[in-house]
Design a binder for these strands. Structure first.
Length: 467
RNA sequence: GGCGACGUGGCCGAGUGGUGAGGCAAGGGUCUGCAAAACCCUGUACCCGGGUUCGAUUCCCGGCGUCGCCUCCA
């Protein structure tokens, strides 16, 4: 597989650190507020990376952290007048609900910063011992100029940086470029004991320490949003490698950001579409497909039209699979799998992979129309849809159970629940159709449509699905 | 100011030095009681100006435009 490595900015052939294994770390959420639509993208993109490697047969260890101690969280708690724990719990719950809805597989390890402070302190001590960090008034700063490779990931020259030109009041940096790896506690803030007094870790050290703990030195892939390249990932490299973990990471992958009205979605500006609301409004599958329509490195413009478009595309995708009920166990069409793999091998060309899926669907539909079984096409569909995580969830009827039941009663049927009620209505409608009683037939179909259940008359019988 | 990305048909979005991926939308047709789904047909696109070339949307140079990072941010 060829991966565009941000480190070096070139397409590189992926060589795992250890044969048959992939160790990857992705920067997850800072649980300071509910997720916005942009946050779903990194989750889905790296979920596909993980699924693809697993599909290839790799043993993947996927670590995605949770930053649960941070200035922003403390600020948010203050503003909302609630405890830090409440902010964390609220945001954490929303993030996980969204991951789950978006069919993002749980990571193998999901470390929380607050549970790894000991490892961070240990790393900071190493940095101080090696002359890469210093304590000042209870803070500890990393000496940027002590790490010659600083800037290699983001392609920056230290002397061109504007960052750190100003020093926040109360900071005691020796050099404006230096950044905090440990922050002395202010009154009322959460803190941990350390050799430098009570305090809390800086954001960047969290990832360096947790990634190293779970994945060791020179692990395979580190991912995150493109906005993390500088300074976060640059700093992660500096800290980890200055502490002796060389190389820190072999491949850096960054997903493009989501724009709204031509501007990046950003928590800090409030220029966002809430992810939970987006999922509820457009459906989880449509949101996931929306992310996957565009190459993962490109910026994407969020728009209502795009989500509606994705929804329609998804309907087409799922409609194909519904034509062939039940599991399919056969060899997938080799030509299609080759094309799919070719696309994915090319720096995870997820958009190209989708095109392959649609080709499979079109030809599969043709075969089905011609009366064939089309099993190789359906099998190919299953493989691709699984890697992309776009499989249609089993139709749940819980939310419309009452409506379905009352509809059945209106039609004079016995009050049976769920699918059997629908089956009974389909039978009743077939009977009516047999007598050319179109009024009754349409009453049933329209009644079900009103609660979101779509009936389709096909040569092979009647199918239904959630609309 | 520094670094970087991008500009493809109504919309979205791949890709390629040589008669146009894919999706959505639209029109026509087949099927169907009607509908839905599906299939078939219909689109000659690649920001502008130079250059290289037999030939450029694809390479090079210069514009213009949009966006990101340089401060917390997926």
């Amino acid at each position: 597989m060829r991966i565009f490595n941000t480190l070096g900015r070139t397409l590189q052939t992926f060589e795992p650190r250890e044969a048959g294994k992939v160790a990857m770390y992705v920067c997850g959420a800072t649980v300071q507020s509910r997720p916005h639509v942009g946050h779903g993208r990194y989750a889905v993109v790296f979920d596909v990376v993980r699924r693809y490697f697993e599909w290839l047969g790799y043993d993947v260890t996927y670590v995605r952290n949770i930053t649960d101690v941070d200035d922003k969280i403390i600020d948010a708690a203050g503003e909302m007048g609630v405890s830090i724990q409440e902010v964390v719990d609220m945001a954490d719950t929303a993030f996980h609900w969204a991951y789950d809805q978006l069919n993002v597989l749980p990571p193998d390890i999901e470390p929380r910063a607050t549970e790894h402070v000991a490892e961070m302190i240990e790393m900071i001590e190493r940095l101080i011992d090696r002359g890469h960090a210093y304590e000042a008034n209870g803070d500890v700063y990393f000496i940027v100029r002590s790490f010659p490779d600083y800037g290699s990931l983001s392609g920056r020259n230290i002397d061109d940086l504007r960052s750190g030109e100003r020093i926040e009041p109360g900071e005691h940096k020796r050099d404006p470029l230096d950044f905090a790896v440990w922050k002395a506690a202010k009154p009322g803030e959460p803190s941990w004991e350390s050799p430098w007094g009570p305090g809390r870790p800086g954001w960047h050290i969290e990832c360096s320490a947790m990634a190293h703990k779970y994945l060791g030195v020179g692990f395979d892939i580190h991912g995150g949003g493109h906005d993390l390249v500088f300074p976060h990932h640059e700093n992660e490299i500096a800290q980890a490698e200055a502490a002796g973990h060389v190389p820190f990471v072999n491949y850096w992958m960054h997903n493009g950001l989501l724009n709204l009205s031509g501007e990046k979605m950003s928590k800090s500006t409030g220029h966002v579409i809430d992810l939970v609301e987006g999922i509820e409004k457009y459906t989880p599958g449509a949101v996931r497909l929306f992310y996957l329509r565009t190459h993962y490195r490109k910026p994407v413009e969020f728009s209502e039209e795009a989500l509606i478009d994705a929804r329609a595309s998804l309907d087409r995708i799922w409609a194909f699979r519904r034509r062939v009920p039940g599991p399919v166990e056969d060899i997938p069409l080799a030509a299609a799998m080759d094309s799919f793999r070719e696309a994915m091998e090319d720096d995870l060309d997820n958009a190209g992979a989708l095109a392959v899926l649609f080709d499979v669907i079109r030809e599969g539909n043709r075969r089905l129309d011609a009366g064939e079984q089309a099993v190789p096409w359906v099998a190919a569909y299953e493989e691709i849809i699984t890697v992309l995580g776009l499989a249609e969830p089993a139709a749940a009827l819980d939310d419309v159970a009452d409506q379905v039941a009352s509809l059945a009663t209106d039609l004079g049927l016995k009050p049976v629940g769920g699918e059997s009620a629908i089956a009974a209505m389909i039978d009743l409608r077939a009977e009516a159709r047999g007598k050319k009683d179109w009024a009754t037939a349409d009453r049933i179909r329209d009644g079900l449509a009103a609660v979101g259940i779509v009936l389709e008359d096909t040569p092979d019988g009647v199918r239904w699905h959630r609309g």
